[in-house]
Computed example of a mutant assay.
Amino acid sequence: MDAVDTHILNILRDNARISNAELARTVGMAPSAVLERVRKLERKGVIERYEARINPKEVGLSLTAFTFVHVEEGVGTLDTGQKLAALPEVLEAHYTAGSASYLLKLRVSDTEGLAQLLQRIGRIEGVRDTNSTIVLRTLKETSAPAVVETP
């Protein structure tokens, strides 16, 4: 990856719907050269997919919570984590080092929705207990990291 690839990735991170012609104008290259670079980044797995960002509040999911999940399973066993990750309200599921085995990012309608979800989580075999933090205000949220050129 070079500076042009980095520039292309950062443009696509901010607007994945940009046309190839506009992308080429922005980076100062021929459209065919930019298209080949994007395809190469896709083949190499640098670009995994393109997706629409949905405003959670507009679809009735105004409460965000982060939940630590303590489980009773062997170290490195991810069976419970796979069950947690399959829940539709779970946006992120991370296997962690520390006091809890998993950290989940959840989106639900309200505190009642969170209570119901935590009950469902508690019924999953292997879950010992949970500890949740409710988000009051989000200052930054993105799923795509900024890309910087490496020397």
Rank of each mutant, 00 (worst) to 15 (best):
A86D: 12
G126W: 01
E51M: 01
S109Q: 07
R123W: 10
E92H: 14
R128S: 00
A65K: 04
R123S: 02
E125W: 13
V59T: 00
L87H: 13
L61Y: 06
S99E: 10
K83M: 15
T77G: 15
D79T: 13
E112W: 11
G126C: 00
D79G: 07
A86R: 13
V90Q: 13
T77D: 14
G113Y: 07
R39H: 14
G98C: 05
T133L: 08
E42L: 03
R128C: 09
A52K: 08
T133A: 14
D79V: 14
L41Q: 11
T64D: 04
I54T: 05
H70V: 14
A33Y: 03
T133G: 10
T96P: 05
L117M: 03
S132G: 02
A97P: 00
R107V: 04
K105G: 00
L103Y: 05
S99Q: 10
E42M: 00
E48G: 13
L104Y: 01
T77E: 05
R107S: 05
H70S: 04
V75K: 00
L35C: 12
E89S: 04
L84G: 00
L103E: 06
H94P: 07
L78C: 04
F68P: 01
Q116Y: 15
G81L: 11
E73D: 15
V46A: 12
E89A: 00
E42P: 06
L63T: 06
I47F: 15
I124N: 02
G126H: 07
A100C: 15
